[in-house]
Nucleic acid binder design. Structure first.
Length: 498
RNA sequence: GGGUCGUUAGCUCAGUCGGUAGAGCAGUAGCCUUUUAAGCUAUUGGCCGCAGGUUCGAUUCCUGCACGACCCA
């Protein structure tokens, strides 16, 4: 401990200041200062007033926040104080403060959290400023903040110590506020359409509802292994069986997979189910939902700048058949279904395919490599094969494909939905097929869920369901190409750190 | 999992064709009552990511490891 203090003189200096305050009888870490105003509210209320009118008002206000800038010259000086709404300037001069308060002011550091009471005025340059009559130290910050101009650049530190990132990089807070607004808009839209928000288990006894490897945990009292859910799908559809004919859930899913720009092991999904509708309804409904989000964010253009692309969300969005896409965009020949040919091409593209894989799964790999990156403007891909859609209803005209779609924007899968498979006999067969694939070594195949089959046997009404990746949605609306920039605390490996 | 690059002061970054390091900001001391990255003067601060190897000598070259960024699977 002492060694560490020796090592960092800056922290040591600040601790000494704190000790000094304490020995002078000053209250430390006090919580009895109650501000009556917020920084940005003062700006919106008084920025428009002339200096003279401000002085006539003689308005006394109190604010609290963190010292973000400190400019002192002898017997006076300025500080920028930041609260959750924004910043406001404070002017401190010797003649307007008590001896003790001025002494305190001279000892303040950038990063300290203070309370200020004073009157409003404007400086020479017209900036609204509080002339301090009283300054109170609320919390002493003993660690120095990053540099005022460049802020915190190191991405690793920004993710690991998000609290520091938030203090110095305003953009982070803006992104997270926008994230909150987007989620609120989505929730609003669902509730307005008479959906009920529910919460289903995060800990599952069986893996299902998606194609992914799960995290495993253990319940001690029951002595059973449990899986963190990879999707809520099978529970939500049980609810539709039970008569909750419009349900949705906004919550975390967990997938035990690699991490990259677009994947974090825990991520947020909005999943919803609506009875007596089919996938065609979902296409329109999704477009409407985006409209609603744009509306809530005050975006009238229905366009987003994302990296180098300007994405146009004008309706209707493009519909693209899976097999057509492979041919027209992926450049494959008409005999695309030729298994050996597809397999070799996938190998050439460096995809990790193996001989046990179904042709459909290989085609999905090819689609992923050749088509998806080219889908910039919102595109619904429809007509996915049955073999890679174990929970989707078959198409009436062509039983090899499903009434399923995925939504791609800027090459990212943003949503996945379909008419739900409600035939318990077909579902049973598909589960068995998944079991086979699992036995062949596919760790992503789902498990046989007998209770879900039982639920279907009671009768699931014709239903449409969809999942929307919230993190990716936020990425689009905030122009971030890394999922880590829209998640407050992305998963990071441990690092030796005293 | 593979490849490329990175890791130097609290922060942002230089640098050393191998001889144990430098700037700006922050800090400290001083001057300064309207500043806006305030200014001026002086000044403190470093296991140069970790572990090996080569060498008289490594922060620098080599190998391995850790963590991260980006690209690919």
């Amino acid at each position: 401990m002492i060694e560490m203090e020796d090592r960092n003189k800056l922290i040591q200096r600040r601790i000494e200041k704190l000790e000094q305050f304490k020995s002078q009888g000053m209250k430390i870490f006090r919580n009895d200062f109650l501000p009556d105003s917020f920084a940005n509210d003062l700006h919106s209320e008084y920025d428009g007033l002339e200096l003279e009118k401000l002085l006539d008002l003689d308005k006394t206000v109190s604010i609290a926040g963190r010292v973000m800038a400190y400019r002192s010259f002898g017997k006076a000086g300025f500080m920028k104080v930041k609260d959750f709404t924004g910043q406001i300037q404070v002017y401190a001069e010797k003649n307007s403060l008590s001896y003790e308060d001025f002494k305190l002011y001279k000892k303040l550091d950038v990063g300290d959290i203070i309370g200020v009471e004073g009157s409003l005025f404007k400086t020479k340059t017209g900036e609204l400023t509080i002339k301090a009559k009283k300054i109170v130290l609320l919390t002493k910050s003993i660690r120095p903040l990053p540099e005022k101009w460049h802020g915190l650049q190191d991405k690793e530190l920004r993710y690991r110590q998000r609290y520091v990132d938030l203090i110095v990089n305003d953009e982070v807070k803006e992104t997270m506020v926008k994230r909150s607004k987007i989620i609120n808009a989505v929730r609003d839209f669902m509730v307005n359409n008479r959906f009920v928000e529910v919460e289903t288990p995060m800990m599952h006894k069986l893996v299902g509802g998606a194609t992914a490897k799960p995290f495993v945990t253990h319940h001690n009292a029951l002595d059973i292994d449990l899986y963190l859910r990879i999707a809520p799908e099978l529970y939500l559809k049980r609810l539709v069986v039970g008569g909750l004919e419009r349900v949705f859930e906004i919550n975390r899913n967990f997938r035990n997979e690699g991490m990259d720009l677009k994947h974090n092991p825990e991520f947020t999904m909005m999943e919803f189910y609506v009875a007596y509708k089919n996938y065609r309804f979902l296409l329109d409904y999704t477009e409407e939902m985006f409209d609603y989000i744009f509306e809530s964010l005050g975006n009238k253009e229905r366009k987003l700048q994302f990296g180098e692309n300007e994405i146009d969300f004008s309706r209707p969005w493009k519909r693209l058949d899976f097999f057509e896409g492979l041919k027209t965009i992926g450049g494959l020949d008409d005999d695309v279904i030729n298994r050996d040919k597809a397999f070799n091409l996938a190998l050439e593209l460096g995809k990790s395919v193996n001989k046990n894989m179904s042709i459909e799964k290989i085609l999905a790999e090819l689609f992923d490599a050749l088509v998806e990156p080219k889908l910039i403007n919102p595109t619904f891909v429809i007509g996915y094969p049955v073999a890679i859609s174990p929970l989707a209803r078959r198409n009436d005209e062509n039983p090899d494909i499903t009434e399923r779609f995925e939504l791609f924007i800027s090459g990212m899968e943003v949503a996945n939905g379909f008419s739900e498979l409600n035939d318990p006999f077909d579902q049973k067969e598909r589960f068995l097929k998944q079991l086979e694939e699992r036995k062949m070594g596919d760790e992503e195949a789902s498990m046989y869920d007998a209770d879900y089959i039982r639920a279907l046997e009671y009768g699931l009404p014709p239903t449409a369901g969809e999942g929307i990746g919230i993190d990716r949605l936020v990425m689009l609306f905030t122009n971030h190409d890394s999922i880590r920039d829209v998640i407050l605390f992305p998963l990071m490996k441990d690092k030796d750190d005293e």
